[in-house]
C-alpha cells in the first residue's frame, strides 16, 4: 500500500514536469494549431540537442515556440518558418534535413546498404544453386581415357585389376 502511494505521489509530481513545456497560445483555427504542432515537433532545440522544441523546457525553445507562433500569425508558410530557423541556427535544427549532396548519405545510405546486402545474398544464392545443380561434367582427355579403361574393365572384370586403375 505504502509503495503504491509513493508511486502515485511520484507520478503526480512528474505531471508538472511533463506539462511544463506547454504554453498557452490562442490559435486562429484548428489548422494553425496543427501546423504549430507539426513545426515544433520537426525543429530541434539548439540547446538540449535530443529534444524537439515542442518537448523542451529550455528558455531558447520557449523563445522559438513564441517566434513560430508569431510567424504563423503573420501568415508565413511552413517552409518560410523552417528557413527562418535554418538561417539562424543552421541545418542542425531540422530533424528532417533537406535532401542535398551533403545529406544524400544520410537519406539514402541505409536503403543503399540494405540493397547491397540483398544483392550480395542473391549473388551468393545463385552461385550456390549453380554448384548444386550442375557440377562440371566435361572431362579432360586424361579423365576420358581412365573412364574408358574403367568401363572396359567392368565389361571384362579379369583383364585389369581395379586397384591398378587408381594409380
Amino acid at each position: 500500500m505504502k509503495r503504491w502511494l509513493a508511486a502515485l505521489a511520484l507520478g503526480l509530481s512528474l505531471v508538472g514536469v511533463a506539462q511544463a513545456a506547454i504554453d498557452t497560445y490562442e490559435f486562429a483555427n484548428e489548422a494553425e494549431r496543427e501546423r504549430f504542432r507539426e513545426l515544433t515537433l520537426e525543429l530541434r532545440c539548439p540547446k538540449c540537442q535530443n529534444q524537439d522544441i515542442a518537448d523542451s523546457n529550455a528558455p531558447i525553445a520557449a523563445d522559438l515556440r513564441k517566434e513560430i507562433f508569431r510567424m504563423l500569425g503573420e501568415g508565413k508558410s511552413n517552409e518560410q518558418i523552417v528557413d527562418f530557423m535554418v538561417d539562424r541556427y543552421g541545418e542542425f535544427v531540422r530533424y528532417k534535413p533537406a535532401v542535398t549532396a551533403r545529406t544524400w548519405l544520410l537519406w539514402f545510405g541505409p536503403a543503399a546498404a540494405l540493397g547491397t546486402g540483398f544483392l550480395v545474398m542473391v549473388v551468393i544464392g545463385v552461385r550456390r544453386r549453380k554448384t548444386v545443380a550442375g557440377p562440371d561434367t566435361t572431362l579432360s582427355g586424361d579423365e576420358q581415357a581412365r573412364l574408358d579403361a574403367l568401363l572396359s574393365a567392368e565389361q571384362n572384370p579379369n583383364s585389369v585389376p581395379a586397384d591398378k586403375l587408381s594409380q
Binding site: 539548439p46 540547446k47 531558447i60 523563445d63 522559438l64 539562424r88 541556427y89 543552421g90
Partner: peptide, 12 residues
C-alpha cells in the same frame, strides 16, 4: 527581448 540574440542564432 532577445530579438537580436535570436537573429544571431544565440542559444545560450
Amino acid at each position: 527581448e532577445g530579438s537580436l540574440g535570436l537573429n544571431l542564432g544565440v542559444y545560450g
